[in-house]
Amino acid sequence: MDWHLIKGGFFDGLDQEFEAFRRLATLRRVKKNEIVFFENDVCARSFYLDEGSVKIFRVSLHGKEPTFFIRSPGEMFGLAEVVGGERRKCSAQALADCKLLEIGRDEFLALMLDHPMLSRRVIEVLGRRIRYLSGQLENLMTCGVPTRLLKLLLCLSHDEIAQARGGPAEVPVRLTQGQIASMTGSCQQTVSETLSSFEARGLIAVSRQRITLLDPGAIMEALSSDES
């Protein structure tokens, strides 16, 4: 089975743990827009994303769908509730055709007991995700839409920016303006106008849901000046 270990992903540096995981995991193919799991589902499995992209979201009482995370290849998702034995707090939906490696809760917990470094990685990842959500809450309370949008683009493109070494970096997932709005606490019209202003300033290029950061350094400088 051609399963990939993404460098910089969840299992980076954990080759032995990844091999043990692969022996227990099963392949699941998910079509674009298909739901992987629903909010309030019993947490029976967690997932390694081998190909594609997945959004983690909730549906509010008013019908809105705030998106909290976008999962990319190499990432695990559905972790927190599986470890805690709780029902799902969010839903997960494929943004593109996906290949997932899924593992049962009992098998994953046993794997963590047998491999302390895997347990440590789970703690590290969940800690980063809590800090990310805390930062998003702070951004909503203190930052305008342009700042929130720039921070989101930088966050989504972190690995690509490192590889580009100062050159243009493409946001690795295709997002509609509506999806971007749901991640920044804004509306589609405001996102459209803000992206257009970034293009006019030469910060980004937009084409068919593809966003390229033309000058990540200039974006970081723009954020620094906004926050100073």
Results as ranks from 00 to 15, higher is better:
Met1Ser: 14
Met1Val: 10
Asp2Asn: 12
Lys7Leu: 11
Lys7His: 14
Gly8Val: 04
Asp12Phe: 12
Asp12Trp: 14
Asp12Pro: 05
Leu14Glu: 09
Asp15Ala: 15
Phe18Gly: 08
Glu19Thr: 09
Leu24Ile: 10
Arg28Pro: 00
Val30Ala: 00
Val30Leu: 02
Lys31Ser: 12
Lys32Val: 04
Lys32Asp: 07
Asn33Cys: 09
Phe38Pro: 02
Asp41Gln: 06
Glu51Tyr: 08
Ser53His: 06
Lys55His: 10
Lys55Met: 08
Ile56Arg: 02
Ile56Pro: 11
Ile56Ser: 03
Lys64Ile: 10
Thr67Cys: 07
Gly74Lys: 05
Gly74Ile: 05
Glu75Pro: 06
Phe77Trp: 01
Phe77Pro: 00
Glu81Ile: 04
Val83Glu: 05
Gly84Arg: 06
Gly85Gln: 07
Arg87Ile: 06
Arg87Thr: 13
Ala94Trp: 00
Leu95Tyr: 06
Leu95Trp: 03
Arg105Met: 01
Asp106Glu: 15
Asp106Lys: 09
Glu107Ile: 02
Glu107Tyr: 02
Met112Ile: 10
Asp114Glu: 15
Pro116Val: 00
Leu118Tyr: 07
Arg120Cys: 03
Ile123Cys: 14
Val125Tyr: 05
Leu133Gln: 12
Ser134Tyr: 13
Ser134Gln: 15
Glu138Asp: 15
Leu140Phe: 15
Leu140Gly: 14
Thr142Gln: 08
Cys143Glu: 15
Val145Asp: 12
Leu149Asp: 11
Leu153Pro: 15
Ser157Arg: 05
Asp159Ser: 10
Glu160Ile: 14
Ala162Gln: 13
Ala164Tyr: 05
Gly167Asp: 05
Glu170Pro: 09
Glu170His: 09
Val171Gly: 01
Arg174Lys: 14
Arg174Met: 13
Leu175Cys: 01
Ile180Val: 07
Ser186Trp: 00
Thr190Arg: 01
Thr190Tyr: 04
Ser192Gly: 14
Ser192Trp: 11
Ser192Phe: 05
Leu195Gly: 03
Ser197Gln: 10
Glu199Thr: 13
Arg201Val: 06
Arg201His: 08
Ile204Gly: 03
Ala205Met: 11
Ser207Gly: 04
Ile211Gln: 12
Leu213Tyr: 05
Leu213Asn: 08
Leu214Arg: 10
Ser225His: 05
Asp226Trp: 09
Ser228Ile: 13
